[in-house]
Write a protein that binds this DNA or RNA. Structure first.
Lengths: 200, 200
DNA sequence: TGTACATCAGTGAACGCGCGTTCACTGATGTAC
DNA sequence: TGTACATCAGTGAACGCGCGTTCACTGATGTAC
């Protein structure tokens, strides 16, 4: 951490860009680092002068977007890996939810960049590649029921909201007497993405 | 805003405490004010010197807790008013959800204090009076189904998570193509808090 | 083969800002005698 | 009835900090002629 870095050879200046993004990513790994993701902290972590970050990013939003892009790929991979090869639709949805909750719990800082504002109010990634994660959900739901694509879309969003709510509430209100995650997950999956689709 | 305040009469020093809490509350009303809730901003809004806040609050967490207490009473009132007098359990749950989503949308700053960290990472209100809001949910669910209290508890938490997820995601990702709120609400209510309680 | 010049990957130093918090002080109002 | 004193509701001035960002510069490497 913060060791001095040696200058990149001529023509390889773009390497610093990756170093900076990885430094930001590393800072998010640590617990307290969630809101402490400042430009200066990132350059410190990368072992470089504060102003060097402007060689590659016009401002803070641009840096955030780069971190977002890096992590979203990983997140979608985790979800894909967790669900692939599971034929039973209910089991696939449960596996998806388990992986989702687990990622949120183990990487609170990264999760905040993906679906929150990460200490930068008003920041929003320009292209929501979060849609890729949502596609997995919608497909799994569609496999389980026979109603239209619209209903599957709505159910996917509702289930997503439930998972997101659980991740963020458990993170921000740890002292609440939470029922077991597996119970809550089953309630969400069996309720929102049921085999049938009749309302009461 | 920031007009000079006249000193309270002797013996009425505690009045400043209310002024400060109300000033903080007012700052949360404004859109940009969510993360800008600083001690100095609050004293500025109250028309008082920055250090005067320490006459009544030991530190920032204490001020946050005071705002939390003020607003939670109001929030529970809104939910209670929205649901009282509605006999049909499903309609009562829908009314609850509508009021919840509406409050979150109309008061993003206040909602953040109630259920987020409000720009103070690690802050958590000592006694979660959020339980009062949850009680309303649990009772409404219990009226709708015949299974045990434990199942109603789990369902109430799951439904809460869904509502919270919708509020925060729509706030932080406004450019996402959200399905109509009423549709999502019906999906959550009819899924999680169904009349019967069988899993698929 | 040598040299003037351009490019590149950064750095040195500084800017103005708002923040949370501390310490010593003030000036009006009440109280004891 | 007057005065010394205590209390109370604040303020003046300042602290050290980290922040995002700007401007001018450096020193090594390559290129043109």
């Amino acid at each position: 951490v913060a060791t001095t870095r040696e200058r990149n050879p001529r023509g390889q200046g773009a390497l610093l860009r990756d170093d900076l993004v990885r430094a930001a990513d590393r800072l998010l790994e640590t617990a307290g680092g969630e809101a402490d993701l400042s430009m200066r902290a990132v350059t410190r972590e990368a072992g470089v002068a504060p102003q060097s970050i402007y060689l590659h990013f016009a401002d803070k939003r641009e840096l955030m977007s780069a971190v977002y892009a890096l992590r979203f790929g990983e997140f979608v991979d985790v979800l894909t890996t967790a669900t692939e090869g599971i034929a039973d639709p209910r089991e696939r949805l449960l596996a998806f939810g388990r992986a989702y909750l687990r990622y949120g719990e183990e990487h609170p800082g990264h999760y905040r960049v993906l679906f929150g504002t990460a200490g930068t109010p008003g920041w929003e990634p320009e292209r929501m590649s979060g849609l890729a994660a949502l596609d997995l959900l919608r497909d799994a739901i569609r496999d389980r029921r026979a109603d239209g694509a619209d209903a599957a879309d709505g159910s996917a969003v509702a289930l997503w909201a439930g998972l997101h709510g659980l991740v963020t509430l458990r993170r921000d209100r740890p002292s609440f007497p939470w029922p077991p995650a597996e119970t809550l997950l089953a309630t969400l999956v069996d309720g929102i993405a049921r085999a049938d689709s009749t309302a009461s």
